[in-house]
Write a protein that binds this DNA or RNA. Structure first.
Lengths: 343, 343
DNA sequence: GCAAGTGATGGTAGCGCTACCATTGTTTGG
DNA sequence: CCAAACAATGGTAGCGCTACCATCACTTGC
């Protein structure tokens, strides 16, 4: 760790490059940002000097001068949740070699924390903002509307986008899984949910809509908690559910971690799956297909959501307003052994 | 999305606050950064005006003027790997309400990508750098040594820290798990590994050291691939391993995802666990304790690593050089049903 | 043949903040 | 009582870059 003088520690500046290349500083700046506006000759010349000197532009100076940082603020509710981890991976992959940077914030499923982080991010004048879900606080929504940059709401779609949106309907997802269970012949279909953030709530609504329509609804079939989701919690919730309704014959798990916990508990208690109890998960993580018996789940396109959110942002920044500001990526039901009743 | 003029879009600046509070700009700056150097009176006065105006300092201007951004660059090899997701969570939690920001980079297990990201990060003059592992390329190592800021290498410890280090010995981890399997009475103990990054390699070395010492080593017991790890891969690798050595009686899985895949494959092939085959994992994710049979694993303190890495950085920035520049957080063997042979 | 346009380049003036030094009043030690 | 130290505050001069406007050579169209 060696000290650094105020004067940039000897790092070359744009002026150094300009002098050495025998051009004005502004031409160097342009050659780097809008090469097509600089003649072939100078461009090559400048590129050579940049290489020789190892010049790297200072992003802070750039941001200060242009009142715009090459940063995309991204807010997700969790980093350990595998689903969001994949969204974030898609986001990073979507950058390619653009000079954009990601500023990641973890809201911990709190609207107020989202609001706070939004203010922090906005102080940097980001090039774009990506937020999760559609349930921002009114203040957060106002901040987004006045952000002065493209905004993408991800993971979910709804009627009233701030700007752009990409995701799918959790209500429809919940309906699809539940309908599958009903069609498979299950009747006492429980719902098991952890965290119960707004998206989980809408899956539950989908479940309820189908169950009521089929005349199968019973509030005692629903077992939820606001505790964060985990595999071990799945086990506990199944126990609770069975204690309430011993005749339970299927469970729709709010996510695959819970489903895995339920599956293990069934093994442990020697409950036959899918004969005695059917199990369906949500998201379709890698393990669902490998589990024994393999787990039915609803595949969601989370990596794609991240990736395309960044595409939309980049298109907007480049001035091409995307034709579709709201993109529904849908989902795909993966029927597997855990709901294949041999009845 | 409304346009923004060059002049800050009307956002209040430090000069606005200074004028309104009837003090010099520099005093406002100090009141915000080193409150103890400003008198009680003025401090309160300034705080009031800051509130009234909704003043938020511009981090870019601050970084430019002070040649130091309040940013910690963090480089991890993967974001979807649950282990690193927890490290990252620990890192974010370690920030508390310091004004530091995290700049996250994903190296995808590539030394060259790490080098590239390091250069990008350094162009911002970060307050600190956190990198994963101890196997930087020579060029990356040089960049770290000349970074002019605190550097923490995480997840692993080794003999030659760039600056600070926090983690544990993967070699010892590998030894501990293998010794446990030998002690439990297993003899044909296979090693199953995916990705095989340097840390996995050292776990394998630990395995090999114990096996050779016990006179049990056989290269055919080792089944690895450079493919990224996943649950489904665990299943495939177990099949491969059994094809090579049908008498295999235990497997040490490089991580818990693989162990879960192995467990499911055993279920599917009706192989008794732990009677016919013992299974041990690595990292001790939440599901290991819930699995049926529950999985033996080696608990690693990854959240703690992230959290304490940031503590060390903050202490260093505050001028208190931590007494211990290299911290070994160790690990903890969790013996469970999957290796409890009833011989 | 000339006004108007176009393309390439450069000079100037900041962006909003803090490092550095200067200034003022107040305390301290001998 | 006075030099020296200190504590609190402020002025000035940038940090490295780009927006804005100007300049200059060349077209181009009529």
């Amino acid at each position: 760790m060696k000290p650094r003088s105020r004067r940039s520690g000897g790092r070359p500046t744009i002026a150094d490059v300009a002098k050495r290349a025998g051009v004005g500083a502004i031409t160097v700046s342009r050659a780097l940002r809008e090469p097509e506006r600089v003649s072939e000759d100078l461009r090559r010349q400048i590129a050579r000097v940049v290489d020789e000197l190892g010049y790297v532009p200072d992003p802070n100076a750039r941001a200060l001068a242009s009142a715009r940082a090459d940063v995309i603020g991204v807010l997700v509710p969790s980093l350990t949740n595998n689903v969001f981890a994949e969204v974030v991976r898609g986001i990073y992959d979507g950058l390619d070699d653009s000079r954009l940077q990601i500023q990641l914030g973890n809201t911990h499923y709190s609207g107020l924390e989202e609001e706070r982080l939004l203010r922090v991010f906005l102080s940097q004048r980001p090039s774009a903002l990506v937020v999760s879900g559609i349930d921002q606080t009114p203040a957060a929504r106002k901040l987004l509307e006045e952000a002065g940059c493209p905004v993408v709401q991800i993971m979910e779609i709804g009627p009233d986008p701030v700007d752009m949106m990409i995701g799918f309907s959790h209500f429809e997802g919940g309906r699809t899984v539940t309908r599958h269970l009903v069609d498979a012949g299950y009747r006492k279909i429980g719902f098991i949910g952890a965290r119960m953030d707004p998206r989980s709530q809408r899956r539950l609504s989908g479940y309820r809509a189908v169950m009521e329509r089929a005349g199968l609804f019973d509030p005692r079939l629903i077992t939820t908690t606001t505790t964060p989701s985990s595999v071990s919690l799945g086990r506990e919730l199944l126990r609770d559910a069975l204690a309430k309704v011993p005749t339970l014959d299927a469970v729709f798990c709010n996510n695959d971690d819970l489903a895995l916990g339920v599956l293990f508990e069934c093994h442990r208690a020697a409950i036959d799956v899918p004969g005695k109890i059917g199990i369906a998960g949500f998201n379709d993580l890698d393990m669902t297909g490998v589990a024994f018996p393999s787990l039915t789940s609803l595949r969601t396109h989370r990596y794609e959501i991240g990736r395309r959110a960044i595409s939309m942002v980049r298109a907007t920044i480049a001035g091409e307003r995307p034709e579709q500001p709201v993109v529904d990526l849908g989902f795909e039901l993966k029927q597997r052994e855990s709901t294949a009743r041999t009845a």
